[in-house]
Structure formats: C-alpha cells, structure tokens
Amino acid sequence: MKKTSLIQKLEVSKKEFLETSKLIIEPNIISDPKKYRILLKKYMTLEKIVFLYEEYKKQLVSLKEVDFILKNDSDTEMKELATTEKYKILENLSSIEKKSYNLLFSSKEGDETEDDRKAVIVELRSGTGGDEACIFVEDILRMYTMYFKKSGWKYKIIHAQKGGIKGYKEIILDLNGEKGIYGNLKFESGVHRVQRIPKTESQGRVHTSAITVAVLPKVKDIEVNINLSDIKKDTFRSSGSGGQHVNKTESAVRLTHLPSKITVECQEERSQHKNFEKAISVLRSRIYQNEKEKRLRKISIKRKSLVSTGDRSIKIRTYNYPKNRVTDHRIHKSIYNLAGFMNGNIQEMINLLKLFENK
C-alpha cells in the first residue's frame, strides 16, 4: 500500500476517533452497558491508531528536513550525520506502517462477511514445470501448514497424489478453526510462480515453474443442494496410506457432478463411506465457488480488481529465490525475506491484501 493511501486511511481513523470521543460521553451511551463496551473498545483501538498517525507525521517532517540537508548542505560531516539519521527515520516509518496496518486490519474485523468466517477446502496442484512444480507444491504446503499452526487451525489431508520424483501433483486439505479462515486465505487462490535453480538442474540455470492454489469456503447442504442423481460415483483402490488394506478394497471414491463436469477424488480414509462424505463436502464447495466466481467476475469488471475473485487462472504471486523476494502482483508489494515467508510468516501480505480490498 502506498504512503498516500495509508495516510488517507489514518485520516479517516482520526475523524472516527474524534466522533467516538464525543459519542462515548453521551448519557444514553453511558447508561447502556452493552453499547458503552462496544464503543469503548472502538475508542481504545482508534486511540492507538491516532497516536501512531501523529508519530508518523512527525517522522515524515523529520525525513523532509534530513533530505533538505543531504541535498543542500556542503558540510561532509553534516551529510554523514544526516545519512545516519535518515536510516533511523526510515526504520521508524517502516515500524509505524506495520503497526498501523495491523491496527487498521483489526479494526475492520467486524466487517467480515458470512463466507469470511467459514472453514475451507485448500487445493494445491502442480502446473508448468514438471517435477520442479511438484516439489514447489510440497514447499507451499509446508508454508501453509506452518501458517495454520501459528493461527491455531487444524487440517486434514483429504486427497494426495504424489509427484514423479518428489512432492505432489495434487493435494487437498480440509481446514478448520475458530477464527475466520476463509477471510484470510481467500486471497491465496490463483497461480503461484517460482523462480529458482531446481535441484535437478546440473548447469545452474534459473527455471520458472508454477502451481495453482484454490481456497474454497466449506458450505452446508442447505447452501448448495446436490441432487444425487446428478452424481456419477466410481470406486478404486487407494494409492495412499493405509497399509495392506488399501490394496485389497476399493475404498477410494471419485465423484463426477454431471451438470458442471466437476470431478472430486478422495482416498485418504480406509472407509469408502468416509471417503464419500469427504468427497461430497469438497464437491459442494467447488460448486458453490464456481457460482461465486461467476458473480465476482462481473463485479471485478466494474472494480478492475482481482484481489478476491478466487480466479485460479490469474498469476498472483512470484517467489524469486535468487533475489530473496516474494512479490504479490495484485498490490505490487514485495517482501525481501523469502525464507521467513516460506516458514509461514505470510500474515503481513494477507493484511495488505485485506486493506487493499477494503479500499
């Protein structure tokens, strides 16, 4: 997010703070404990934002003064001092920006949609790049599972198809937790591109590979009504875990929704019945997401934004290993700590995407 956009949001928060300050002392608010508690919580959050905003403006003034010295002063010693001071100011500004993003994001939690609060189905699939794409699926899986752990969410593998040498051609997760999972992860849907030297590359050349990520909100049967006569069911022997059992019984399930041609496989459970239940859950989510994407595409034409459409054909992010950089192309934001990002520290990027969408 650009500084001008951040300042605009901070200005809005300051106005809200002044309005809330007047409102919270009104007799009808004080006499209503519930209203007072809600308003007090808002007041305290806005107070922190305003404090940061005032400090932010001071640092920006200091930056202008330092830049003036660097441009106009001929004294070498003064320029050295100004350079050191500028480095400190830029660090302070960066710190204030991060704190502001977090507070602005937390103040918007009440704006969550019903979908944002839902659990999700996460699907990862290898794309262009052969074996390297399969390895990157495993890398992104690790990144997400570390993020899930930090967030206190629990996941189960519904379906997994191994890659040729290593990694996965496809893996599907069932993710649950108390907080709004879809509200955070919906921005992850799309094409994730990696640029690095594959382990299989003998000449040290940088290759570009890609995988697709789909994040689908889990929906109940009352939200998506599936007619069983529209489903073709096939069973087959599982190639996943389960010991000798998987080789003896056809516990794996493949469901095809005939009207939409959507196909789902599930083979991680030993029981065909349990695999069928999980496959139905994934199928329901995919049908729901298909309808949602159609609506969002119409909206995105008007908004000229693809931040939350969930369109899996759009290149959303590049992970550049030689430059230690991850870039989100929708908001033109780069983070120069790829190792940290791949260790599950992705919340900063998600917060920026949320703020961009709210804007």
Score class of each variant (00 low, 15 high):
residue 102 N to Y: 13
residue 95 S to N: 15
residue 119 A to T: 05
residue 108 K to V: 08
residue 16 E to K: 12
residue 135 I to M: 01
residue 76 T to G: 09
residue 73 D to C: 11
residue 89 I to E: 01
residue 27 P to G: 00
residue 25 I to S: 11
residue 48 K to N: 05
residue 16 E to Q: 12
residue 76 T to Q: 12
residue 84 T to P: 04
residue 115 D to K: 07
residue 139 D to T: 15
residue 59 Q to E: 13
residue 92 N to D: 13
residue 77 E to W: 12
residue 79 K to S: 08
residue 30 I to Y: 10
residue 53 Y to C: 00
residue 38 I to N: 10
residue 72 N to H: 11
residue 128 T to I: 11
residue 63 L to N: 14
residue 59 Q to V: 09
residue 102 N to R: 15
residue 108 K to G: 13
residue 121 I to C: 01
residue 94 S to T: 12
residue 64 K to E: 15
residue 75 D to L: 06
residue 128 T to L: 02
residue 104 L to Y: 02
residue 104 L to K: 03
residue 93 L to I: 11
residue 39 L to W: 01
residue 31 S to H: 08
residue 45 T to P: 06
residue 25 I to N: 12
residue 88 K to A: 06
residue 35 K to H: 02
residue 29 I to Y: 04
residue 114 E to N: 10
residue 83 T to M: 10
residue 75 D to T: 08
residue 96 I to S: 03
residue 58 K to W: 00
residue 73 D to M: 07
residue 47 E to Y: 13
residue 72 N to L: 12
residue 46 L to G: 00
residue 120 V to W: 08
residue 73 D to V: 14
residue 98 K to Y: 05
residue 70 L to R: 03
residue 60 L to W: 09
residue 18 L to D: 15
residue 44 M to I: 14
residue 77 E to F: 14
residue 136 F to M: 06
residue 23 L to M: 09
residue 72 N to M: 11
residue 13 S to V: 06
residue 60 L to F: 01
residue 69 I to L: 11
residue 102 N to Q: 12
residue 104 L to T: 00
residue 132 E to W: 07
residue 78 M to S: 11
residue 129 G to P: 00
residue 119 A to H: 13
residue 104 L to H: 00
residue 134 C to I: 05
residue 39 L to K: 08
residue 57 K to F: 08
residue 54 E to C: 03
residue 98 K to E: 15
residue 116 D to Q: 00
residue 88 K to L: 08
residue 65 E to F: 05
residue 138 E to C: 03
residue 49 I to P: 01
residue 111 D to C: 04
residue 55 E to A: 09
residue 24 I to D: 03
residue 107 S to D: 07
residue 12 V to L: 10
residue 22 K to H: 10
residue 32 D to S: 03
residue 120 V to Y: 05
residue 72 N to Y: 14
residue 103 L to E: 11
residue 81 L to E: 13
residue 109 E to K: 15
residue 38 I to H: 04
residue 84 T to D: 13
residue 29 I to N: 01
residue 11 E to H: 03
residue 88 K to P: 12
residue 34 K to Q: 13
residue 46 L to T: 00
residue 81 L to N: 02
residue 66 V to P: 02
residue 93 L to K: 07
residue 81 L to V: 10
residue 133 A to N: 08
residue 96 I to L: 11
residue 79 K to D: 07
residue 56 Y to C: 03
residue 18 L to W: 11
residue 114 E to R: 05
residue 31 S to Y: 06
residue 45 T to V: 09
residue 23 L to F: 15
residue 76 T to Y: 15
residue 45 T to N: 14
residue 77 E to Y: 14
residue 134 C to Q: 11
residue 65 E to N: 06
residue 120 V to P: 05
residue 30 I to Q: 14
residue 96 I to R: 06
residue 76 T to M: 14
residue 23 L to G: 11
residue 104 L to E: 00
residue 100 S to P: 00
residue 39 L to V: 07
residue 97 E to N: 02
residue 136 F to D: 14
residue 59 Q to L: 13
residue 44 M to R: 10
residue 70 L to D: 05
residue 41 K to Y: 06
residue 69 I to N: 08
residue 88 K to M: 05
residue 59 Q to F: 13
residue 84 T to W: 14
residue 62 S to G: 15
residue 137 V to C: 01
residue 91 E to G: 09
residue 17 F to V: 07
residue 88 K to Q: 06
residue 14 K to G: 00
residue 79 K to F: 02
residue 98 K to Q: 09
residue 29 I to E: 02
residue 44 M to W: 13
residue 90 L to I: 08
residue 99 K to Y: 02
residue 55 E to V: 04
